[in-house]
Design a protein around this nucleic acid. Structure first.
Lengths: 254, 254
DNA sequence: GCTTGACCTTGACCCTGCGTCAGGGTTGGA
DNA sequence: TCCAACCCTGACGCAGGGTCAAGGTCAAGC
């Protein structure tokens, strides 16, 4: 008869695991000898090898218990299920390999392809990586907050990028990041921005709900808040835009 | 800004997992609003997706922590390692699928093919499934205890099965399982067994060590112990065999 | 007969990566 | 004003064991 250590050696299962299986009721407790040691026989070896095989295949211990006293018919059904689960797992791991590969390669992982394209275009325009990152974070925020508006925002942005004047303003705005908030060029830039906004954008876009406006405001504040000169520029541009839309109004009321 | 629930929805990570990552220091605790709620921004989203991607790939959280503040160079090195690990894991799961497939096919899993063949031959001889199972368990025991002796045992068994007399004895022995231990036919059968053993087997096989003898004894006790009549038969046969080998000896000394 | 070292016993705590209460407070819409 | 749907912290639970701790046993060598 075998002691627990011998059984462990023969089957390649650890002593601790065998006791664990006893505790879980997976493997029947064998008879003890006079000194209280467990004594195993051939049937225990067979049973333990079955358990080990299933456990190594990733079957949870609870399931193994059911399977051990299952009829061959249910057993083979269950085996098919387990096999399906393994196949699924393999598919997932393959997916993960792909994702890990993308992780080394930038934003492709976080954003839909059209937005990645837009970011690429900004880079081609000579926009600094810093500003591209700010734009990227803003998009991520948008996608999280109002995914249903993304197609519209994307097409608006694409349209704007087709306009040479917008591109000129964007590149200049990128450079303005480091300017002093009192720099006189900011007023010029703000004027150009306001003019472009007034000429290109209809006053109301379709689908603008309070929630989407809030999202837009959040996005703008995220962008604008990253540089003091941008903050100043935004103020100036907003004032200018109000003046353009409503010429009656006194120019400096807050 | 995003609440924890929005962040969870967007990234596909559970709220609980996000809090767990905070606790582990994987994801920095964001600022709280007036009511104590966590408020996240775009950078948190990016960071969380990195964490998620690595975690899903099976990277331990402790390792993820190191990776997150690693330089791009070490990171891509680590990514390659992780990819290797994933490939390895896929190989393992594929192995498990094979094992599961074999498991539905009966004993193929636990035993080498030659032994499965032997069991098949016993079935073709008309031996009962019950006895085949006992024989199978005995082989499993042998494989576990003395794998190095298996080739020899297999060839011995194959040789025996080529002998019509052995086959006759084996089939009869199978039927004897249910006999009463006092059945007179047992003595006959035991005589035949002893005669066959004396005629066919050399007294010493090569490679018989104390360990292998112990294994054989364990195996025999396993087989013989499964039926009272077999136990009786074994006794009778052993006595008869001693008589055959050493005719001088008085026939009934214990 | 004594020691030594390799076994065996039970019990209890540790680990990962969260899920799932419990027992609260907050927010937003009807 | 109320309710559902959020949010908060804290604590326990799960698999599948690893790893002490604090002993009892066994065989060998001296």
């Amino acid at each position: 008869m075998l002691t627990i250590g011998q059984l462990a050696d023969y089957t390649g299962v650890t002593v601790r695991a065998i006791r664990h299986y006893h505790q879980r009721g997976l493997l029947a407790e064998p008879a003890r000898d006079a000194s209280g040691y467990r004594r195993y026989d051939g049937r225990d070896v067979v049973e333990l090898i079955r358990i080990k095989t299933l456990a190594e295949a990733g079957v949870p211990l609870a399931r193994i218990q059911e399977l051990l006293d299952a009829e061959p018919a249910e057993f083979s059904g269950a085996a098919r299920q387990i096999d399906e689960a393994l196949k699924q797992k393999i598919r997932e791991l393959t997916q993960h390999r792909r994702k890990i590969a993308e992780l080394t390669g930038g934003e492709r992982l976080f954003l839909p392809a059209e937005i990645v394209d837009i970011l690429g275009e900004l880079r081609r325009m000579g926009v600094s990586e810093r500003t591209v990152q700010i734009e990227r974070d803003a998009w991520i925020l948008m996608v999280a907050l109002s995914p249903e508006l993304i197609p519209e925002w994307v097409s608006t942005k694409r349209g704007a990028l087709d306009d040479p004047e917008f591109r000129r303003i964007y590149v200049l705005g990128d450079q303005a990041y480091d300017w002093d908030p009192s720099d006189p060029r900011l007023a010029e830039l703000a004027d150009a921005m306001a003019a472009w906004a007034a000429s290109s954008r209809p006053d109301t876009s379709p689908g603008e709900t309070p929630a989407s406006l809030a999202a837009a405001a959040l996005m703008i504040s995220h962008i604008v808040g990253s540089s003091p000169s941008w903050e100043r520029m935004n103020e100036l541009a907003a004032k200018r835009l109000r003046a353009l839309k409503d010429p009656q109004r006194p120019p400096d009321s807050p």
